[in-house]
């Protein structure tokens, strides 16, 4: 399905919701919305526009510009064979968005990853834990103010290693 057809379908499905379409370089239909309408937008995209798969949930960090984060969702419709991208800007102090797991359970891990990597809260996610970094890790690695080589990367291991030494006997 070509981009104009997709745009027409999306615009029809999102009647009454405030959004603007922007021209992406790759030609994908891209919507920019405010956070307040996201919950309704997800429901409409899922039920009326027929987007039945969540492809990705991620964020882009524009540090030190404000608003700092730009959330990106991408959805695929198998029946119409087309994609749509949704974007939403977030300030650092107020980085939370509604979850889209009620419509697309498959977005669960993507949202957990986004929380892990950027520290963005997903309201309503049933199990928002770190996904890739261990429990107890202090930082959000994909933020631009986090150095590539990490901050004390071995901290958790050293804590574990101390415990191991205390209770560990080589010949036991």
């Amino acid at each position: 399905m070509t981009a104009p057809q997709t745009r027409e379908r999306v615009v029809k499905a999102l009647e009454g919701i405030a959004f603007e379409t922007i021209d992406a370089r790759d030609g994908m239909v891209t919507l920019r919305v405010e956070r307040a309408v996201l919950g309704e937008l997800f429901a409409r995209l899922s039920d009326r526009a027929g987007f039945d798969q969540n492809t990705l949930v991620t964020a882009v960090d524009h540090f030190p510009a404000e608003p700092r984060f730009e959330m990106v969702w991408q959805f695929l419709s198998y029946d119409h064979n087309d994609r749509v991208r949704v974007k939403c800007s977030l300030a650092e102090a107020d980085a939370h968005v509604p979850t889209c797991t009620p419509q697309w359970p498959g977005a669960s891990f993507s949202e957990r990853e986004c929380f892990d990597m950027f520290g963005i809260q997903f309201d309503g996610h049933p199990d928002l834990r770190r996904l890739l970094m261990p429990e107890g890790y202090l930082h959000h690695p994909l933020r631009k103010d986090f150095p590539h080589a990490g901050i004390e990367p071995d901290r958790l291991y050293r804590e574990w290693d101390k415990k191991r030494r205390e209770g560990w006997q080589p010949n036991a």
Partner: peptide, 25 residues
């Protein structure tokens, strides 16, 4: 790997490619 004496082998090595990063904070 004893807690206190542990050092990353590459610690202190200049990471030139990273220092040039336009977003390097």
């Amino acid at each position: 790997g004893t807690g206190e004496t542990f050092k990353q082998p590459n610690a202190g090595v200049a990471r030139t490619s990273l220092d040039l990063h336009p977003h390097d904070p």
